[in-house]
Design a protein around this nucleic acid. Structure first.
Lengths: 214, 214
DNA sequence: AATAAATGAATGAATGTTTATTCATATATT
DNA sequence: AATATATGAATAAACATTCATTCATTTATT
């Protein structure tokens, strides 16, 4: 079930004829447990029972909120993709004349997210590379549209070469950055941390790449 | 079971007392079927029964050659990682005084591999990003040793900055390149093919990155 | 050369486990 | 009491794995 719809129905109930108080943070617990379990054990080995246990919720209750395991994971993933699009749109509004500012801020936010919401970030990273979970065309198209805006800004200012494809920008902004951050966090034993200094490093690398045609 | 061991035992038998001729390409069929099934349906949805069917082999026979599903997939993955290390070692031998030559040749080979052995290449890409399959420390250490050699060459010639970490080089050579190729092949509908021209593009991008400290 | 015995390859039905999903029941709230 | 939430045991489907059996080939015996 869609989260917004759920909350809406839930509030409706409250206004009319509430029988039993909903355990308010149950949905949050389920979401966190899903992400944590998948991060710890991988999607293949994660079962509904494990998620339910980690969320302190009965197994059957999950089916009240989601139609099944796939839907549960999908919704978490799609929510994040929507949030990323929203964030990008917001950053474009903030910096309507500088592609590098948008890119830099976006990268900064990826690092903050990876550090502050490690579970959610690792979860997103896993799904990004899982063939069984693909975002729908609407989400894809909105993302393409936003990247086109960034490209237009960059071409105007000379920050991006006019022959750079939308896919190139998408790849470097959404895959390269995320992979870079997670690779460094995963290998944190040997020099591999991630910090604010990486923002400049990543930004410069990507801007250099986007300056050339491909 | 290890492939080399298998072939060895198999030949031993031939010398003494062979009861029934082995279907020679059965092992090859199983390997190909495993990769193809996983590429088509993902690891989660791939079952032993599906692999056996695609390989034209009985389900139970898989357990003569491998101790189970996990071992079957692992061996295919590890074989590829070993092959990559061997290839890198070979390329270092060929170009002992030029990091860029090694890197360029390695990238070239990745693209050829992705085009000529698409199934195997996609299979490797999937496992590269799957947390449930990690290469052992020996393989990791050998890889690190090889990359250290490349770094030393590059630092001497000025192609690589002395402050670039081994992890950086590893990431860009083994993740960035592979991800780039597969991203472009996956999105082949819109301008996204991969060709020899990408060799120069990728090589230059990576060399530029490795020229700077991180 | 013909036949029988021995051997190991290969099968696929049977087994037992794991898992997603359902549903009868219990519990809490008004 | 009425109503909705929440439970978790029960169910059924899917699955990895095993194993008794079959089959093709080689070796020994005549």
């Amino acid at each position: 079930m869609n989260e917004c719809l759920f909350i809406y129905l839930h509030k409706l109930k409250k206004q009319t004829n509430m029988a039993r108080k909903i355990d308010e943070d149950k949905l949050v617990r389920i979401k966190n447990a899903t992400m944590k379990t998948i991060v710890d054990y991988g999607i293949e080995k994660t079962t509904i029972a494990m998620i339910a246990k980690n969320a302190n919720v009965s197994g059957g209750y999950l089916y009240r909120l989601y139609s099944g395991k796939q839907a549960l994971i999908e919704e978490l993933y799609y929510d994040k993709v929507v949030a990323l699009n929203n964030e990008l749109e917001f950053l474009i509004g903030l910096n309507p004349t500088s592609a590098s500012s948008i890119i830099e801020a976006f990268i900064q936010n990826r690092i903050v997210f990876a550090l502050n919401e490690a579970e959610a970030s690792k979860f997103y990273y896993q799904l990004l590379h899982n063939n069984n979970f693909n975002v729908n065309d609407d989400l894809k198209n909105r993302n393409i549209a936003l990247i086109e805006i960034i490209k237009n800004i960059g071409v105007k200012t000379g920050e991006i070469h006019k022959n750079v494809s939308i896919l190139q920008i998408h790849f470097h902004l959404f895959m390269y950055v995320v992979d870079y951050i997670h690779f460094n966090l995963k290998n944190a034993f040997a020099n591999g941390t991630i910090a604010d200094s990486d923002v400049q490093y990543l930004t410069q690398n990507i801007l250099n790449i986007l300056k050339k045609p491909n």
